[in-house]
Design a protein around this nucleic acid. Structure first.
Length: 264
DNA sequence: ATGGCTTATTGTATAAGA
């Protein structure tokens, strides 16, 4: 008789909340409505001393956070215990709080807030390129150490034309430019997979819409929030979806959650 | 059409996001 290992189903999600101070109630309501095990947040925009550890604990979530005032800030919320907590990209000096990692139920979870880049000809774009290079170098090592790896967050890259509502208008712009897309492909080249594209998906699926010009109502969006999984986790992916419901609330974040159901 | 919203700031106009 063959003994099969017990399979555990984990629901992971990523959500750029554009200020946790403003969006905490949305996060709590969403977690109440959705049975999420692990939620990665970006752009918390607050220092660790302001982070609502107690409120999240009362909601049933452990939480780790790397934040700063005004900009950036990443967090992982988990129903299960987190170990081997790590901050940032090792060997890459960065004052901006953009990466936090932990091991949860045998899976290495890396929460990323990738640089926006502002404009192709800006210093911030140069920083984005350097940052992506450092991320890839680091993840190559992390994958050796943790074969069961998920990298999820706000990538600030729409990987393909179908991830952009108007590829012609956006051509060459930041978020869709060829060098950024090449960096995204290079991440896939490490042995990572865009879990959203492992499944049949509706056309014009996006995770972000501009606040201006009724972007959401007109579905003028981009798919820039992604959940990448390693080879070892690929077969366990059950479904990946974008939940547009939070984007319809009063005072929403401009991003909406992406969810992956995973068997490990 | 470089605007159009939203957030945060030792704020009251500016920077940044995407």
């Amino acid at each position: 008789m063959t003994a099969y290992p017990e399979l555990t189903t984990i629901k992971l999600a990523t959500w750029n909340v554009n200020s946790l101070n403003v969006r905490l109630q949305h996060v709590l309501d969403w977690l109440t409505a959705n049975p999420i095990d692990i939620l990665c947040l970006q752009e918390t925009k607050q220092e660790d001393s302001k982070f609502p550890y107690e409120t999240l604990k009362a909601a049933g979530y452990h939480a780790i956070h790397a934040g700063q005032k005004t900009y950036n800030g990443v967090a992982i919320l988990s129903k299960h215990e987190m170990t081997e907590v790590a901050y940032g990209i090792s060997s890459f000096e960065d004052e901006q709080k953009r990466v936090i990692s932990a091991t949860i139920q045998g899976v290495r979870v890396v929460c990323v807030y990738i640089v926006n880049g502002q404009a192709i000809d800006s210093d911030k774009y140069v920083y984005k390129m350097r940052w992506l290079e450092a991320l890839r170098t680091w993840l190559a090592v992390e994958l050796q150490k943790y074969p069961k790896l998920v990298v999820l967050g706000d990538y600030n890259i729409a990987p393909e034309d179908r991830d952009c509502h108007d590829p012609v208008a956006w051509e060459g712009q930041v978020l869709v430019s060829a060098p950024e897309r090449a960096h995204f492909q290079a991440l896939l080249g490490l042995g990572l997979h865009d879990s959203f594209r492992l499944f049949e998906q509706p056309e014009k699926s996006y995770s972000w819409w501009d606040y201006r010009m009724m972007g959401f109502r007109r579905n003028f969006g981009l798919r820039i929030d992604h959940i990448l999984v390693s080879d070892a986790l690929k077969a366990g992916c059950k479904q990946c979806t974008i939940d547009k419901a939070p984007r319809k609330l009063e005072r929403p974040s401009d991003h909406t959650p992406v969810i992956l159901e995973l068997s490990v």
